[in-house]
Each structure stands twice: as structure tokens, then as C-alpha cells.
Design a protein around this nucleic acid. Structure first.
Lengths: 343, 343
DNA sequence: GTGAAAGCGCTAACAG
DNA sequence: CTGTTAGCGCTTTCAC
């Protein structure tokens, strides 16, 4: 009654443990088994309500059928669709997901990754490195040969990654505002150390260049805290509203910051989009439900999660393949809503 | 080089495997070990960069140091803080979190729980059962004796739970509107089968009763899909704006639905709070950043996650305690912002 | 204080 | 086609 293991089944079915294992452990074995014994075993398993012991299996196979996902901040809605993409893909392939939250702290990020190694995960996905990371601090995969992929934020290292072209995204957002006639366009920056923030800024700059606009440092608003609404709110007040700078539009690092900025603008009597246009980034769920609905640059978040997972599982199944530095770059898409207007 | 296990360490330190285990496996053992050998072992472990094999350990100890968390819909921001509360608490105690997303589907929910059993988790947390669940379908913990706790949505069964007093929350929201002079107050319902939705509705009704208002079925707007912005948007249009019903305010099942409803109201020319007041529920992150900022009933989400985790770990450590039906009920809190006003 | 050895449940040679 | 057997790495009696 106590032990629902292969031995119990083999006894009940009058076969050897090995045979029971062959029947129950799935298709892999090339060995053929007679229908009779197969049935006997299956029935015994059903009767005993057999659940294979994953630890014994993992111990034996040196494989955990588990991958770890570290998100930089679980409170950021940005990760919801990514997690979903990862989880769906994983589930359909019999893998499990161990989730770790770095709480936007680089020390915790490092701890999480180390911890995951100890958990013997077959692979690791890192979604959104916290600001302030240093390449050297990020635990590499050398030691344990556990493949590691970066999601949604490229890291200019030897690690493979799946992300959109952030520079193009920044360009599209800025170009959209330029096309609407804006000239004094701000950049509501996320944490400057974030590689994707740098890329979006680069896109912003290249749009300025292409259309012959002059860069002005006063147009760049920075507040070096997590890219949440509060940060956008403060950056907008301190970097623009409390100063006497001319600005008719801005491009925000992400939707969350844009939402915070919109609140600040409205409080100070600006009307969006009549007086001020704003473009976000990501297209998180509430972006379409803000007032006015937010024009933004969409990232295919679920797809990013899904494809990163496929890439990872692929690497896992072919451990000798040379995936170092492989990068998958997806395309962002401008979604025009109500927060931008012709000047 | 290959094997970084206890055997390697014991060889390097010239001790037995047993001794190495005693030193490295932590405090539990009452046996004393001389400082000398302890040091030898520790050094060897450090040199080899030893990571204990959790599978061997779990196999031996019949314990996984892992708990499973099933969320009904990872896209719902509602779960972010809950996950954080769970994860933080777990991490500090050396446990890991396997996350499963039920995608608001009761079949998947069931699958997830079964799957988690197979994963030998030491306990399970279920956050937000999807609508349409049936008590019988929810896998019970009888079989495997794996403790299972419901979070944020009480289920009127024998399962322990941690949640707020939803009826009180519904009462507070409705009372607030009544105090502001509203009499024709709607209820923007979530999926009616959801137990917390029923409780909030009950609170709404009891406020009506207490203040002598008359219930009117026309005031209840229902759209039986996941409680996301889109659902609130449609329910408001179909249940109110397209009809000729008198209504000056409404209480929404949650913030997400409130946001959708606000969009619908604004599109039809209503002004919030001048023409129409609305109260949400949960106080998710963007609630404070909507236009106008949303008056809502706050749930202490992170605390719920944290306390449910403590409860679960407690049960795990004392498997014989009688926790059946234990319920922890926390208090909701009305947060008044800008979406409600005197009539 | 320390070591030898059994065994957790499973899979994969190797025999037969 | 099926059975025997040797471990995977760890903890834990039981000796000494």
C-alpha cells in the first residue's frame, strides 16, 4: 500500500522490474514487448495509481526535465506574457518551470542563477537582467554546461539571446512623432545601464539624425530606478515639468513609465494628445486601456518566451551543437492609438 | 574532474563518504565532528566547487524542497505580488517554486495539479481557481497527502485557504458610493461562478440592504469571460450603455474590469468622476495611474502570498497536524482616489 | 569521532 | 522478448 513503485507493479503483474520500467517509461526503448505483458503491466500500474518517481529518474538519467526562469521583477506586467509563452511551450514537452524573481536586484539575480544550478535544471532562461549587472558577475554556464539564454534584453556577451530589435523600436517610435510634426521630442529613459534602454536611445538618436533634428541633452529625462510607473512619474516632473524646457512629445522607455508620465502631465494641466504626445514601449495589457489609449511599440512577448524556450530545448537536446552567441532578433511593431497627434 | 560528488570530496579529504555527508548536509546530525576533519572536508568541497545533488537527496529523504504554485492566469497582474510573496518566503527557507499557469481553464488547472503531484512537490498553492471549477474535479490531496492551500479565492470546501474577506470588500466599495449620494449603483460582475465574485456581490447586496436601497437586476452587468479589461469594456457597453438604464456609479469585480469599463464610459462621452463614479477591486499597480486614478478596495496581495506560504510550510513540517479547513481571512481596505465623487 | 554498507526508485547494459 | 544486476549520489543505522 505504501510503495507505489516499479517493484510493486512488477510483483502485481508477475514480471520483472525491468519489464515494468520498459513499459512505463515511455517510447524510447527499441525493445519490443508483447502485448500481453504490456497490458498486464499497464493494468497493474493503473490499479496502483502509479506515479513514477522523478527523483530516481533524474538521478539515473542526469536530467531534471526542468528549466529555470529568472525574471528581473515579477511585478512588471511585461513578464506575464513571456512567462506564459515559456510555460506553454515547456508544458507541451513534459518539462517543468522553476520560477525565480530577482526583485530588480543584481545580487539576487546572481544568487538565483547559482541556486538554479544547484537545482540541476537542464537549462536557464534569464528574462530582463536587472540594471547594474556586470558581465563578470553573471554566472556563466561554463562550469555546469547548463545552457543559458537571455530573453528580451540582449546582453552584448557570448550568451545566446532572443529579443526584438530595440534600436529599430526606438527609431519607429521617434519617427512616428517626427512624422506628426514634433521637433522637440523627449526621451523618458529607463535605467541607462540597461542594454535595451541604450538601444532604444540609439534608435531615438538615429531618427533625429535621419530627419536632421538636433539632439539636446535637456530632452532626455532620467531617473535611475526600476522602470515602473512611479519612476516615469517622477522623471517627467523632475526632468521636464519643473524646468522650463520646450517639449511637445516624448518617447518613453516602456509603457509603465509612460503611464506614470501621463499622470504627471495631466496633473500639471497638460492634455494628451492635444498638448503633448507620448509613445510607450512593449504594449502591455493596460496600454490599450489608459486614457487616452497609449500609442506604443509592441513586442511579441509571448512569442519571445516561446521561441526562447524552443531554442533552449533545442540546445539541451543537442548539447554539442555550437550555439554560443546565437541570437534571435524579432521585429517590433508600432501600434498607433490615441496618445499621439499632429502638432 | 567529472564527478563533483561526495565520493570525490571524501577521497580528496581522506575521510569516508559518510563523514563528508555529515559535514556538508547541514546541521541536522547530532553527531559531533572534530574541527580538523570538518575543515578538511569544507576545503575539499570548496576546491571542487561542490554542489549537492538534489535528486539523490530528495530520493533518499522523500522530500523535494519544492512547492507548486498554480495561478489561474499569469497575464492577470493580480498574481504578480502574490507570486512575489510566495517566492520570497520560499527562497528564504531553501525551497523552490514550480510555477504552473492554468490559463483560466479548469481542465488545465486539473492537469497542472496532477502534474505537480508527479513532480513530488511537498505542497501546492492554488491561486485563483478558474471559473467553472467543480469541487469534485479539483484533485484532492488525499491520495498523496500533499497539502494544498487555496489563495485569494476561498473555496467552500474542506481545503484550507488564505484570502481577504471579499464580502466585506464588496460592502465597503458599495457603501462608499452610497455615502457619496449614489443610489443607482451597478455591479460590474466577474464570472458569476467565481466564489469571490459571489462574495463581493453579497457585500454589494448587504450594503443595499443596510441603507435601504432597492436591488435591481438591471444594475448587474455580467459577461462571463476572464475578468480582464476587455470583459469589463464589453459588459459595460452591453449591460448599461446600450440600454436605457439609469445608473450613476458602479462597483467593479476588479481593477482590470474597471479599467475596461472606464474606457467604454469615456468613449460614450461620460466623464469620470463628474458623470459617473466607479470603484475597482484589488489595487493592482496601474490602478493608481489610470485617468482618473481608480478608487478601489485593496487586497494585501504580497502578504496573502507570504502567509499562505508560511501556512503551507508549517503544515509540511507537521504532517500530522489537523489543518483541514483552516482558513486565514485578511482585511481589505478602501483606497479612495479620483474615480468617485459626490453626486 | 569515524567508517562500512544498505537502500531510496529508476534505467540500461548484458544475458539468456 | 524478458530477467538479472549494477549503479546514479545521498543519508543513515550500526559497528568500531
Amino acid at each position: 500500500m505504501e510503495n507505489r513503485n516499479l517493484r510493486a507493479i512488477s510483483k502485481k503483474a508477475n514480471v520483472s522490474i525491468a519489464t515494468a520500467s520498459r513499459v512505463l517509461s515511455g517510447a524510447k526503448t527499441v525493445v519490443k514487448i508483447s502485448e500481453k505483458t504490456r497490458k498486464k503491466v499497464m493494468e497493474a500500474a493503473k490499479e496502483l495509481d502509479y506515479i513514477p518517481n522523478v527523483f530516481a529518474k533524474s538521478l539515473r538519467l542526469r536530467k531534471s526535465f526542468t528549466i529555470g526562469l529568472v525574471v528581473s521583477n515579477i511585478e512588471d506586467y511585461f513578464f506575464g506574457p513571456i512567462i506564459r509563452g515559456v510555460e506553454r511551450n515547456l508544458k507541451s514537452k513534459g518539462y517543468h518551470l522553476i520560477l525565480a524573481d530577482a526583485e530588480d536586484d543584481i545580487e539576487k539575480e546572481t544568487f538565483c542563477v547559482h541556486d538554479l544550478y544547484g537545482r540541476m535544471v537542464d537549462g536557464i532562461l534569464i528574462a530582463g537582467i536587472p540594471a547594474g549587472y556586470e558581465k563578470e558577475k553573471l554566472p556563466t554556464n561554463e562550469r555546469k554546461k547548463v545552457p543559458l539564454i537571455c530573453i528580451a534584453r540582449q546582453i552584448d556577451s557570448h550568451l545566446p539571446s532572443v529579443a526584438i530589435d530595440n534600436e529599430l523600436g526606438g527609431f519607429l517610435a521617434t519617427e512616428h512623432l517626427i512624422m506628426l510634426g514634433h521637433r522637440r521630442i523627449g526621451f523618458l529613459s529607463g535605467p541607462p545601464m540597461l542594454p535595451d534602454c541604450q538601444s532604444r536611445l540609439a534608435g531615438y538618436k538615429s531618427a533625429f539624425k535621419k530627419y536632421g533634428l538636433k539632439l539636446d541633452k535637456n530632452l532626455i529625462m532620467v531617473k535611475n530606478t526600476s522602470p515602473l510607473p512611479e519612476t516615469g512619474y517622477k522623471a517627467m516632473i523632475e526632468g521636464f515639468l519643473n524646468k522650463s524646457i520646450k517639449m511637445t512629445a516624448c518617447f518613453a522607455y516602456n509603457d509603465f513609465m509612460a503611464m506614470g508620465a501621463m499622470k504627471a502631465l495631466l496633473q500639471k494641466g497638460r492634455k494628451i494628445p492635444e498638448n503633448f504626445s507620448i509613445v510607450g514601449f512593449d504594449d502591455i495589457l493596460p496600454a490599450a486601456y489608459s486614457t487616452p489609449p497609449l500609442t506604443t511599440v509592441r513586442q511579441p512577448l509571448e512569442e519571445i518566451g516561446r521561441r526562447a524556450t524552443s531554442m533552449l530545448l533545442n540546445i539541451i537536446s543537442k548539447p554539442d551543437s555550437d550555439y554560443v552567441g546565437e541570437k534571435l532578433v524579432l521585429q517590433p511593431k508600432l501600434i498607433v492609438r490615441g496618445s499621439t497627434r499632429k502638432i
